[in-house]
Amino acid sequence: MSAAHAADPKPLEAILGAYPAEEASLIQILQDVHRAYNYLPCDVLATVAKTLGVPLAKVYSVGTFYKAFSLQPQGRTIVKVCTGTACHIRGAAQLVDELQRKLGIKPGETTPDMGFTVKTVNCVGACAMAPVLIVGETYHGNAKAAKLDTYLAAGEADDAD
């Protein structure tokens, strides 16, 4: 539990104020929390559970069920490499290798400066433009390992604000 660095409660207040305090709002709230904090902080989940009157175990259960939620702090920019069949064939592995060489992290890890988190994901449904690399919210089709610097710089600029 990372109670050591308590999360800023400000964004949470705004999020909780935007939805009715009932169980049905849980996933929407978790999505907004994830967007605001880039992960689901432990103390924030406790506040969400209390406000909605949902048991903490249920909130944790939902938070761990969906791949879209992370319980670990993540980098400012999330880099996803699609490793679906088409992307795999067209060189997703090279993208992963190159990312590891450039950023020094394996899939699922975050750079020490909290700049980037690298993940591999299964098919994102854009097989025609394989291999696909997603940096922040931008999809790069026919991604090339040689162009990684450009992709990362653009993603970093997007996520800076």
Binding site: M1, P55, A57, V59, Y60, T64, F65, K67
Partner: peptide, 30 residues
């Protein structure tokens, strides 16, 4: 646990990693 109105434990994760556990695997407050 739910039926008794306590809900201290729940299933966590999904797929092959699914298991019954308290939140964060720590002593459940409830």
């Amino acid at each position: 646990c739910d039926h008794l109105g306590i809900s201290a434990i729940a299933t966590v994760n999904r797929g092959i990693g699914r298991e019954v556990a308290p939140p964060w695997g720590e002593a459940p407050p409830d």
